[in-house]
Design a protein around this nucleic acid. Structure first.
Length: 384
DNA sequence: TATCGAATAT
DNA sequence: AATATTCGAT
């Protein structure tokens, strides 16, 4: 108490004024009652003490109003320190310091309701504090990340908050979760898309934001491979056809195209790593006389798991376990679906260029068993 | 115009 | 490394 008196004198304030000042102080820091519980408590105690000093009786500052945060100050002035410990506990239970950020929304609401007359400083607090990352808004369930809205590729432009999103972008890698990603054409929250996303006139303040990255889960990739197989291989298949066969809601041509491009790259060049001149065998085709033949190594790789005698473990290429390119589609999806027979593009390239893998079908090297190919695509796990 | 595939960009 | 976007060609 002495302490207070001294302060007062220094400030040239009377008890009433000092109390008032303290109360104001308290009001100010109330916003931080969560971060500075002790400070809050201290001021509270001070007020209490002063009041007692002033009136000689126990006062209830609580009556004044906003006291949400750790009210129980009622306990007279005992040794302040003793109070500290309990304070923390209390914090979580009091309305003001409701800890569990679990739900900012609800919290907000609650606040709104509770505050009505109070100055909504509390609300504001949560708002800006949030922006400062002291609290993180409940992270979205991982699954959410996985199954984004189908129709529209929602850009994560959203709001400023997005800036910190990276936190959530966790890697929920792997199978289990992945499974749900696939979209038997419906899994993808079609309803949501139709309602919320898509056409909504206003929304999209997307601006130049980039598309949300399409995550190629294993399932998705499986579908991709399957489609590829049906279309007779990566070379004959075109993005659009693939997309149609995959029948995945929300999947776009561009996405497939991109994936296809990557797939093709992986497929043909396992590891473009500095081929030391010692083993230039990386080339899929070798010039013999005036014709190109598939090089053994490449054949091995091409047929993926079927790496027979040629143990050229040429790579982590296995990653993309190329589906053995079938000369003919296993099953034509539907007449219209495939307008162009898988041989539409004959780049007429007998060139030095090493492309046209599609042709090696006739080659003896080609994986002879269709089963191998299918199994391949099943077992092969994309690097994801 | 719609697609494609390669080249870039992020 | 994995996707997205751009660009030129069909």
């Amino acid at each position: 108490m002495y302490f207070f008196t001294e302060k007062m004198q220094r400030l040239k304030l009377g008890f009433p004024d000092y109390i008032q000042a303290l109360e104001e102080e308290r009001r100010k820091i109330q916003v931080f009652c969560k971060e500075l519980p002790l400070s809050f408590e201290l001021v509270t105690q001070a007020i209490e003490a002063c009041r007692q000093q002033l009136s000689g009786t126990t006062s209830e500052y609580n009556l004044n109003g906003q006291s949400e945060c750790s009210e129980r100050t009622t306990s007279s002035e005992g040794p302040v320190l003793e109070e500290f410990i309990p304070i923390k506990k209390r914090a979580s239970s009091s309305p003001c310091c409701d800890e569990d950020d679990e739900d900012y929304e609800q919290h907000s609401l609650r606040q709104t309701v509770l505050n009505e007359n109070n100055n909504n400083s509390d609300k504001r607090k949560s708002d800006w504090l949030r922006s400062v990352q002291l609290w993180n808004p409940d992270p979205p369930a991982e699954e959410d990340a996985t199954k984004k809205v189908p129709g529209m590729e929602l850009k994560r432009s959203g709001s400023g908050g997005g800036a910190f999103q990276p936190f959530h972008r966790e890697e929920r890698a792997t199978k289990e979760t992945e499974t749900l990603y696939k979209a038997p054409s419906s899994t993808r929250v079609p309803a949501a898309s139709s309602s919320a996303g898509e056409l909504t006139p206003e929304k999209n303040q997307n601006e130049g934001q980039r598309k949300q990255r399409r995550c190629w889960s294993q399932d998705l990739h499986k579908r991709f491979l399957h489609a590829l197989q049906q279309l007779g291989g990566a070379d004959s298949a075109t993005p659009k056809q693939i997309r149609e066969l995959m029948n995945v809601d929300g999947l776009t041509n561009d996405e497939v195209k991109s994936h296809l491009q990557k797939y093709r790259l992986h497929t043909r060049r396992p590891s473009p790593l500095v081929h030391n001149n010692s083993s230039p065998q990386a080339a899929p085709f070798v010039l013999v006389g005036n014709i190109f033949v598939q090089s053994p190594e490449y054949a091995a790789v091409a047929t993926s798991t079927a790496s027979r005698e040629v143990t050229t473990v040429t790579a982590p290429a296995g990653v993309y376990a190329p589906v053995a390119t079938h000369p003919k589609p296993v099953s034509q999806p539907s007449a219209d679906s495939i307008k162009k027979p898988q041989f539409k593009k004959f780049k007429h390239s007998e060139h030095s260029n090493s492309n046209e893998r599609g042709h090696h079908s006739e080659g003896a090297v080609h994986s002879n068993s269709p089963t191998s190919s299918s199994s391949t695509h099943t077992s092969a796990s994309p690097g994801y």
